[in-house]
Design a protein around this nucleic acid. Structure first.
Lengths: 211, 211
DNA sequence: CTCCGAATACTCGGACACGAGTATTGCACT
DNA sequence: AGTGCAATACTCGTGTCCGAGTATTCGGAG
């Protein structure tokens, strides 16, 4: 069976092994050190399953086992030629081809009409503020890394993150403002639909706000 | 155990049942009809597991079974009071609190230094073009829906999607341009690192582009 | 010298996601 | 009347993910 390229943790592992042989735990710590946890989800369970999967597809191979002091044995892995090719190709695919993703917020937005307008607006404003705070945090991290002498290329993914977070904040603010101003198409309908609601509970009848 | 709010398909199901009782297959077709497949990932396996989970947590209950003609029996589900509360609360959470997500592209960007600069730039430009095309498509869908008489609120999530796709395209173009112009921090290093590469294969030695 | 807490290095079971496969029925068309 | 094809309504096995739990060791405080 073909390797499915699901979890990007697999990509990160290949990337690490491209530099040098490692045992899983070392991969985890290295990813931590480099703040790569921010762009790939890291957790031990997944890490070991992912390495197992890579092994099964001959993308990595066991280089040997180490025993240091009396610690449990650690298997050290290395990249195979197929693995190197896979890394390169996967990376190309990831960069060149946008893939459909399903951010949770989008699912929420799709159903936002189920909340009363006032509440929805307030929640959006809360989100915008949280995003503002995150943006400040991100910028701080970035300048800190720059001052540590790391080249921009080493934290370029933060640049991307920043851009996307900013875009989301702007959109959320736009939405809240438009809703507050009553400029949204279907707004009257929305208001009427929730006319009978009191704070804290939603209506329980069975009308729809879609065609 | 508490319901874990993992798959947003669960939210969509609750949203549908808020309107009226349904059997799973009908949920699927309704989601399709409303283009909600675009904001929540729909597939049969997951649908039935999700409904099962909702059932276990008393968020929905079996209202009865239908048999139409000689078709297999279909279980019809309805929302419980707890389910209605859950829908409302989940939605509030989803809107108000940004959650850390891991878009695949970000993982790719984090490792983009592993590709030779020229190739990376070219791939980015390819992505930007694909995104352009998707933006055009999105706008077409939106005007079409508007002309069908649907209020903006019924497809507000597309508005969000559009904003995010646009932001991504802009970022990718910025990156490609900056890289082409050599304005990125660490650019010389990047170039040197891949100086020996020939088109089609990546270097195989063991240097790193990070600290 | 001893105790404590942090770090090391995993394991395991259960939950979850997925999508190909199956079996039936309605309907159009020959 | 028969054929083919889309739509209906799932099922099931495999693969993946997850995170709490476990056991050990090292370094520093007392």
């Amino acid at each position: 069976m073909k390797y499915r390229r699901t979890n990007t943790l697999g990509l990160a592992v290949l990337g690490l092994l491209w530099e040098r042989d490692m045992h899983p735990y070392e991969m985890a710590s290295t990813l931590r050190e480099r703040h790569q946890e921010a762009s790939v989800k890291l957790n031990y369970g997944s890490l070991y399953t992912v390495v197992e999967a890579l092994l099964k597809h001959d993308l990595v191979h066991a280089v040997g086992t180490l025993r240091e002091g009396n610690r449990p044995e650690r298997t050290v892995y290395g990249l195979t030629d197929t693995g190197r090719a896979e890394l390169h190709d996967w990376l190309r695919e990831l960069i060149a081809e946008p893939t459909k993703e399903y951010p949770r917020f989008e699912a929420g937005v799709a159903l936002i009409g189920l909340l009363p307008p006032d509440e929805a607006i307030e929640l959006c404003e809360r989100r915008a503020e949280t995003l503002d705070a995150q943006l400040v945090g991100l910028r701080e991290v970035m300048t800190a890394l720059g001052e540590q002498g790391l080249p921009q290329l080493a934290w370029i993914e933060l640049e991307y993150r920043l851009a996307m977070a900013r875009a989301e904040r702007d959109w959320v603010r736009w939405f809240a403002a438009a809703a507050r101003a009553g400029e949204l198409g279907g707004q009257e309908f929305w208001r009427d639909l929730h006319a009978g609601d009191r704070a804290g509970n939603v209506r329980t009848t069975k009308e729809d706000d879609r065609g």
